[in-house]
Write a protein that binds this DNA or RNA. Structure first.
Lengths: 229, 229
DNA sequence: GTCATAAAGTGTAGAAAGTACACTATCATT
DNA sequence: AATGATAGTGTACTTTCTACACTTTATGAC
């Protein structure tokens, strides 16, 4: 079976820069390539777009097939199309970036045997193709976006403490934040709903849990509210 | 001559949402399609990506071929990939958005004979394919971006008055701005260099000309300066 | 059970930035 | 000389941002 066209066509792939957050580290999801080129090396999850699916469907399918992840925040990132980025043929890659609640997915440590693993973004291995550049683009987008859109919540479990959230922001922005000012600002947006639940079995005063109020977010967004931090 | 692949490949095009600013109106550049489908209708300038050029080269080539424009600010916008967006075959389009100094290019009024024309964004004709959606995406990006990056200058001639700049901002943001506050803020960024030139032959006090100081912009950008208006 | 340790939680004063607002200056036209 | 059009300019008030330190509450070690 083969496909013939009157003019040359590039191949089109989708790739995802998937971030997770784990206590203290921002992490990136990589998969080991099972075929040449770069067989056995780490790469972004992704693959070829099929003719009957749109781009987002394609990346969701690939993520499911390669990593089992279905619940994530997904957004198109950038399209990479240098002529020589794949040694086989001309391949244009539509990159997505994604945020995942890490606690929902088992954390496998990277080894020779593992096919999928989370790496701290500060200690990434070499990656195939031009995926390093795609990762950098994704990191820059995350950092920029977290300042003016409440997407940090996507990286946390449904309920979290203000301390968790602050650690996340400090990690992504790579700078310490003042606790009182942070709380004032976050609570000032009215996006968090305080739960009547508290941490248990911690060796210090138990923190209150909060959850992200998505309805409230949609309301405010429609009114053009500015979520800048 | 034909091209055969083991797996199906989509076609890939580039399209550009090109904005210009003309005294009072934000304008969009459209071209008349010379072939089917949608022959004779207005569409975004663009075309198929060749295998030996990257995406930006492709859109620059198409803009030159179709409109003669070479000097412009260009940035990738979004990639559109619904399976049925082109009736011929699966076509994925990488859209760019571009800002042009309108005074550099002749303004042809749209007619049955014209192949290229500027339209006020408030009075756009029907456009081919899903180009309306692409235009909306471009408009949203322009509006968002003008708030936190000094890209408005790209739409103006090299030298301009503060009044010109304010009219541009008011048009793009669709809201009136206070003259004194606007000037304070714009001049406060230090991005404008006052020229020792003034308007001539105007029926009112002559305004001073300014120019965008690109070097200063690069300096500030590297230091993480915030250009928010 | 007391002490050490660890993080949670809380307010205020001063600085900086944003906002609202009105008149004078200068040019061309009549 | 009067009119009409846009340029150009400062200040008071409000809001937001920033810096900063102590008390509370839980566990674990002794």
């Amino acid at each position: 079976m083969s496909y013939t066209y009157k003019y040359p066509h590039p191949a089109v792939t989708v790739d995802a820069v998937v971030f997770g957050f784990d206590e203290a580290d921002l992490k990136l999801l990589l998969v080991r390539r099972r075929i040449d080129p770069f067989k056995g090396e780490w790469a972004l999850p992704g693959g070829f777009v099929r003719l009957n699916e749109n781009l987002e469907e394609a990346i969701r399918r690939e993520l499911l097939e390669e990593t089992g992840i279905t619940e994530l925040y997904l957004e198109q990132l950038y399209t990479f199309g240098e002529p020589d980025r794949d040694p086989r043929e001309r391949v244009i890659s539509v990159a997505y970036y994604a945020l995942v609640n890490l606690s929902l997915y088992p954390v496998a440590a990277a080894s020779d045997a593992t096919e999928v693993a989370w790496f701290p973004v500060a200690e990434l291995p070499e990656v195939a193709f031009d995926h390093e550049r795609i990762v950098e683009t994704g990191l820059a987008r995350l950092k920029a976006k977290v300042r003016y859109e409440p997407i940090g919540f996507e990286l946390l479990p449904r309920k979290f403490t203000l301390g968790d959230l602050q650690r996340l922001y400090e990690t992504v922005l790579e700078q310490p934040l003042d606790k009182r000012n942070f709380r004032k600002k976050i609570l000032g947006t009215n996006l968090l709903q305080a739960l009547k639940e508290y941490q248990q079995d911690v060796a210090h005063r138990a923190a209150q849990y909060y959850q992200f109020n998505r309805e409230r977010y949609e309301q405010l967004r429609k009114r053009g509210f500015n979520f800048e931090l």
